[in-house]
Structures are given as structure tokens and as C-alpha cells.
Design a protein around this nucleic acid. Structure first.
Lengths: 187, 187
DNA sequence: CACTGATGTATCGGCGCGATATAGTGAGGC
DNA sequence: GCCTCACTATATCGCGCCGATACATCAGTG
């Protein structure tokens, strides 16, 4: 998932690790943190795989507004390669099981505007199925164990159930919206 | 957190890995999965640390209702040692930062009935602070980026904000309930 | 008798986290 | 002119946990 996010952000413009992390934070807004401990190793991996390359600051770029006098040290700026773009498209098109769990779904949805409509649909529906399962699991636990289980645990499950119900409703709206658009794409 | 959960369940009665996992599922109800890939290694670790010991089925226990003719192979039954109980108490009393994030909080709350009241309070308040931070982060992002950000991302953040708000309210109720009980514990 | 599904233990590769180390840079205070 | 503080920036280490996978055994079914 980090891979998808990095590739997606780098698709817009070349960036270095630190900035990447900030953008990641804006994008995913506390939905997912992604520490340096995973960011930098992942960048390395992507570089080794040839999906991104380190960009030498040949042009010191004095045209940039408020250009910082950077470039003296460190600051490895990465950009996507052709393979990287391909890989990004692949990841976007993937609607596998990992895209319906909490983190996976959130990250992928953040790139929905670049995801093909039918993949979007499959992800949304997969996520809905997943949350419905969770909801049913909680319902049956609460119904079965009912009174006998621990008061706090019950409260915890009750809250989880409510959240699931709300998310299903939310997903239903999103799906309906998607259908509306697919039928009448005449903006 | 797995450690806390295992110790807690084993505190009630000796168990083997497979059953432990089932109970874990009931307890945490899809809040947290805990695969075998973490369960078994953790059991080993706890055993090495002397917190749990393997119990030999000296008595073939024919008195058990519907006693399975087990015992032929595998099935390592573990039980808590004195150190294990101590460690459990320590973990219960810990209200550190890890207890306010999503998973940590859920797991710990499942053992709230055995957690000292004041620790419970500190965890609840810590969690609230955490969720409030998340809420504020989302609010400011939505307010700042407002219209310009991606439609799907905005929807994602909107949903996250709503969840945060609901959870804060929920926590407030729990906290109020705790206070009510602390003041008048005369059931 | 073979198939299927639940019970049961175990390992492997890999992802991501949290803590930590190290340093250069800009701004403000005195 | 110097000092300190906060931010920018890269990097690594150990560890927890996951998903997949591989094995066995036992119970019920066709």
C-alpha cells in the first residue's frame, strides 16, 4: 500500500522522502501514518526495482518561486520511470482482498479519481461485503452472548456494530453515486 | 497487545493455541484478528520468558463432559505461572501511549473489568485526547483544503471526521459513567 | 473407502512501526 | 556575532504481526 501511495504521489511531481511523507499525511489524514522506518526502505526497494530513479538537480532551478538554496547535501529527489507508471496503473487496477480491509481501502480510495470506474466499483462492493461480514459477526456475538458477556466488551462490540452499520450506509451512497454517474456521464 | 490478550485468557483457564485463537476472536470480535503467524511465536516467547508453562495431561480427564479422545498428539496446553499473573497485572496497569491507539485501546478495553478503575480512567482520557487530535486534524484539513481537494479524498476525510466525533461522544459517555460509579460505588 | 471440513501446530518472507542517530539550515533572541 | 531552537532531511535496527503455506489427525458424509 505504501508502494501505491508513493508511486501515486511521485506521479504528480518528483519529490524527496521528507516531502513525500508530508504529502502522505495530508492525503491520508491520520488514516495511516507511514513512518520513516518504512518510507525510506520502501524508496530503496522501489529504486532497486527500477520503478523510480534518483533525479540529479542538474538545473539549480532558480525560476521556482521562493526557491530554497538547497542542493548542497543529501535530499534525494526521486521521480517515476516508465516502469513505475506501469506499476502504478497495475496497482490502481488491482481490486484484490487487500483493498477491502481498513488500511488498504483507505489508501486506495485516496487515489480513486485515477482509478478506472469499474475497478472503483469492485473495490467499493468488496469493501461493503467485508464490512457487512464484520457487522453480522458483531450482531451474532451480541445476540448470542447477549447479557452474559463483560459489560465493557459488550459496549465495545456495540460501538463496533454501530460503526459498521454507518459505514455500510456510507458505502451504499457512494455506490449509488457511482451508478448514477455511469449511467448518465453527461455531467 | 497479543501478550496481554493471551495472558488474560489463560488467566481464566489453561488452553492450547487453537482454542486461544477462537476465544481471541470472540473477545475482540473482528476488532483484531491475530493470525497463527503471530500467535504461536508469541506463545513460544512467553514460554521462554517463563510466563506460561506447558501442562502435561497427566490425568486423561475422563470426567470432562464430552471429553475428546485427544492427547495422542500435539495439542500443547498452556497455563499461567505466578510470573505470568504478575506480568498480566503489570500490563493491565499500563496506561501508556500504545493503549490509546486503535488496536491497543480495543484490546485493553476488552479487559477493563479486571483493570483498576483509575487506570481505566487514564486510558479512556488518553484515548479521547488521541481521537480529538485526529478529529481536529481532519477538521483543519477539510477547512483548509475545502473545495480544491479530490472529491473522494474529501469524502474519506468527511467520514473519518464523523467517526471521530462519534467516538469522542461515546468516550465522553463512558467517562461520565466511570465518574458516576467512582462517586457512588454503592451499586 | 475416499472426500471434506474442522482441529491442531508450525514456519517463512515481508511490511510497517517506533526509537534512535546524525546533520545541515533558518529564524529569533541577546 | 553567537547561541539555541525548531525544522528539514536521511538512514538503520529490532520487533510485532500478517498472509500464505505446509503438515498432520479426526469426524462425519456419500
Amino acid at each position: 500500500m505504501l508502494e501505491l501511495a508513493i508511486l501515486g504521489l511521485l506521479h504528480d511531481s518528483p519529490m524527496h522522502g521528507y516531502e513525500l511523507r508530508k504529502r502522505l499525511h495530508e492525503l491520508l489524514g491520520t488514516l495511516r501514518a507511514f513512518s520513516y522506518g518504512s518510507l525510506y526502505p520502501t524508496l530503496r526497494r522501489l529504486q532497486r526495482a527500477g520503478l523510480i530513479v534518483e533525479e540529479q538537480p542538474t538545473t539549480p532551478a532558480p525560476d521556482r518561486t521562493a526557491a530554497r538554496s538547497w542542493g548542497k547535501r543529501g535530499k534525494r529527489v526521486y521521480k517515476l520511470t516508465a516502469e513505475g507508471k506501469e506499476r502504478f496503473a497495475e496497482l490502481l487496477a488491482d481490486a484484490g482482498p487487500q483493498t477491502w480491509d481498513d488500511e488498504g481501502f483507505g489508501v486506495h480510495m485516496a487515489f480513486f479519481s485515477r482509478t478506472p470506474a469499474e475497478v472503483r466499483m469492485r473495490i467499493l462492493e468488496g469493501r461493503r461485503r467485508r464490512v457487512e461480514e464484520r457487522r453480522e459477526g458483531l450482531r451474532s456475538t451480541l445476540a448470542r452472548a447477549g447479557e452474559q458477556i463483560d459489560r465493557y466488551t459488550r459496549e465495545l462490540h456495540r460501538m463496533g456494530l454501530e460503526s459498521s452499520e454507518r459505514e455500510v450506509r456510507w458505502l451504499n451512497e457512494l455506490i449509488a453515486e457511482e451508478q448514477r454517474e455511469q449511467r448518465g456521464p453527461a455531467s
